[in-house]
């Protein structure tokens, strides 16, 4: 938390920062990432304003997940730079753990800790990383669970929950440390269709709370509904970006049109 407070202060005089005046939460510039010989992100620019939701859409393998993993420093980028709250986090001197503390991630496969109860999953980081006393961390966690309709599940182990419930717990775990930015990596892709709604509703609630989010998704209807900014990834670049209405309603690029047509044909929009 203290890092955020520091950053919100004015830049020190005499140290002009490259990004002075940059109010975006996350900014990426010319990011390149390759795995072995294959180029996943060729030249990606992205800017995420505070309290907005950015949806990353694109075919499987277009680099949506990789982009999110790079933003959280789970992957090291080959070239370019990433800023979080105006601070360059791809500088090798950055304290990576401190950066990750400010970014929450929700994974496609939930990645809950199977040997811990729901409550322990949620309170692990607040207690061990942020030093919140146990009673306080648990009270906050119970409050979160209550809001997510999981109040009765605090003492259960993850494998006793449905996929939708597990994913909601994973969201609670990610927001329990009050992150500056939340990354959601195809969080409904592993869910049965009837469980998708309950998870998406939680994301809508978070948006209403003003959480800044970047989500990779195949749920086009949801992206159109909730996103302030939609980015279409193709061939390792953001091929098209704009408001949801612009990208979905009047796509400028032929490849975007073709992608959206396939989605419509599949009955997903």
């Amino acid at each position: 938390m203290s890092e955020i407070l520091q950053k919100s202060g004015a830049p020190e005089p005499g140290t002009p920062r490259e990004s002075a005046g940059d109010t975006s939460v996350l900014r990426m510039e010319s990011v390149r990432k390759t795995f072995g010989g294959s180029v996943v992100l060729r030249d990606v620019d992205l800017e995420v304003a505070p309290h907005t939701v950015t949806a990353l859409i694109g075919a499987s393998g277009s680099g949506k997940s990789t982009l999110l993993r790079c933003a959280n420093l789970l992957e090291e980028i080959d070239d370019g730079a990433i800023w979080l709250d105006g601070e360059e986090i791809t500088d090798p001197r950055t304290d990576q753990d401190a950066v990750r503390r400010r970014i929450g991630v929700v994974f496609q496969a939930y990645n809950l800790f199977p040997h811990m109860t729901v409550l322990e999953n949620i309170t692990l980081a607040p207690r061990r990383v942020h030093g919140v006393p146990r009673a306080e961390a648990e009270e906050h966690a119970r409050g979160l669970l209550e809001r997510l309709g999981l109040g009765a599940r605090a003492a259960e182990y993850p494998d006793r929950l449905s996929g939708g419930q597990q994913q909601r717990v994973a969201i609670a775990r990610a927001v329990a440390v009050r992150p500056r930015l939340l990354l959601l990596d195809e969080i409904t892709a592993a869910l049965d269709p009837e469980l998708v709604g309950e998870v998406l509703n939680v994301v809508r609630d978070l948006k209403n709370d003003g959480m800044t989010m970047v989500l990779a998704t195949h749920e086009m209807g949801f992206a159109r509904d909730v996103a302030d900014q939609v980015c279409f990834l193709d061939g390792g670049v953001v091929l098209e970006r704009g408001t949801a209405d612009e990208v979905f309603g009047d796509p400028q690029q032929e490849r975007t049109r073709r992608f959206l047509r396939r989605i419509v044909d599949a009955g997903r929009l």
Binding site: N72, L74, D97, A98, R100, R101, R102, I103, G104, V105, F107, A109, N111, L112, F113, P114, H115, L124, A125, R128, V129, H130, R173, A174, V177
Partner: peptide
């Protein structure tokens, strides 16, 4: 590895991830 990734993404250090997430399992 996704368990370690989840732990690291919460801000746990390598050592904390080992102690609280990897070793118990």
């Amino acid at each position: 590895p996704s368990q370690r990734a989840a732990a690291r993404s919460l801000g746990l250090t390598n050592r904390q991830a080992l102690r609280y997430v990897v070793l118990p399992q």
